[in-house]
């Protein structure tokens, strides 16, 4: 029999949901609708002159080599950030799970980066990796490595990937740790009695049982890499030397807020939203089938 919470007043559940629904309506549906509306118009920056142009904005955007370059950067960036954020988190979670003394201390320290605002994290690592005022930045240069992410596009992308991934490791770590700690000990004990080595136990039992967590984190990390990394990119490289760290999200900002090309950037917004929705749907349809529950 399913347990249900029964509210005495009929209206109460709706009232309790109302604030969150209001926030979602005002801060997601309204701007999304506005973006879809503006993406079929060509306007001047003040909105005084408006022309209806059907899908021409989309056509202009999708045939623009600069935009296609940002798509390429986004794919590289998101893949790298997701991998680099999830693998160390899993490793740390496995190690933290086995620690007996000072466990809560390790957990607190590993979770700290998640509490930092993205722009603050970016400035923090800027002060470490800056070629003239950063310890590691200066160190690399004295070793003879030509480290200067302000003029080298690949180095800028590397730095931005690293900082974005570093911020997200804590979040993944928390979920992996929770998943590991809710693992049924009986199966693992049975496996070790049967003579399975720790490595085999991990890859054949623990990892598949962690798959719901891994799948969830995959979805969340990809969305993070697409959208929430704007702060890091803006604070560190502003799109990078010569467009090398301009992701699709940053391109939307550059075209919408700075260049005031409202139609073009709304079209890019709609494309980005569609891309992430499709990605998430694909993940749910195909990868969820392989998840053990």
């Amino acid at each position: 029999m399913k347990r249900r919470t029964i509210y005495r007043h009929k209206l109460l559940p709706y009232l309790l949901l109302a604030p969150q629904l209001a926030v979602t309506l005002v801060f997601f549906f309204w701007p999304a609708g506005q973006a879809i509306y503006q993406s079929v118009l060509i306007q001047d920056p003040f909105g005084l002159r408006t022309q209806f142009v059907w899908l021409e904005n989309f056509q202009i955007v999708l045939t623009n080599p600069v935009y296609l370059e940002s798509v390429r950067v986004t794919i590289i960036f998101s893949t790298a950030v997701t991998l680099l954020a999830m693998a160390p988190a899993l490793l740390l979670a496995v190690m933290a799970d086995q620690v007996v003394r000072g466990a809560s201390g390790y957990r607190t320290l590993i979770v700290w980066p998640y509490a930092i605002a993205p722009a603050v994290a970016a400035v923090l690592w800027l002060f470490i990796f800056h070629p003239s005022i950063g310890q590691i930045g200066q160190g690399l240069r004295t070793l003879g490595i030509p480290w200067d992410y302000r003029i080298n596009g690949d180095q800028a992308l590397l730095l931005v990937i690293f900082v974005s991934a570093w911020k997200q490791v804590s979040y993944n770590f928390l979920f992996f740790l929770a998943g590991l700690q809710s693992m049924p000990k009986t199966i693992l004990e049975a496996a070790s009695i049967d003579g399975a080595s720790p490595r085999r136990r991990f890859w054949m039992i623990v990892f598949p049982l962690l798959s719901p967590t891994t799948f969830f984190l995959l979805v969340v990390n990809i969305i993070y890499a697409f959208f929430d990394t704007f702060g890091v990119i803006h604070a560190l490289t502003q799109g990078g030397p010569g467009r090398s760290t301009t992701t699709m999200m940053y391109r939307v900002y550059r075209d919408g807020v700075i260049n005031l090309d409202l139609g073009g950037s709304s079209a890019q917004s709609v494309i980005l939203m569609t891309a992430v929705i499709i990605l998430t749907v694909v993940q749910f349809k195909y990868i969820e089938r392989r998840v053990h529950y």
């Binding site: 003029i151 030397p241 700075i258 260049n259």
Partner: peptide, 19 residues
């Protein structure tokens, strides 16, 4: 027209040349 965008374009191309 669209001077900020043109200025950014010039700066981007300049950065690519420096690289």
């Amino acid at each position: 027209g669209n001077m900020p965008e043109i200025r950014n374009i010039i700066q981007e191309e300049f950065e690519l040349a420096i690289q």
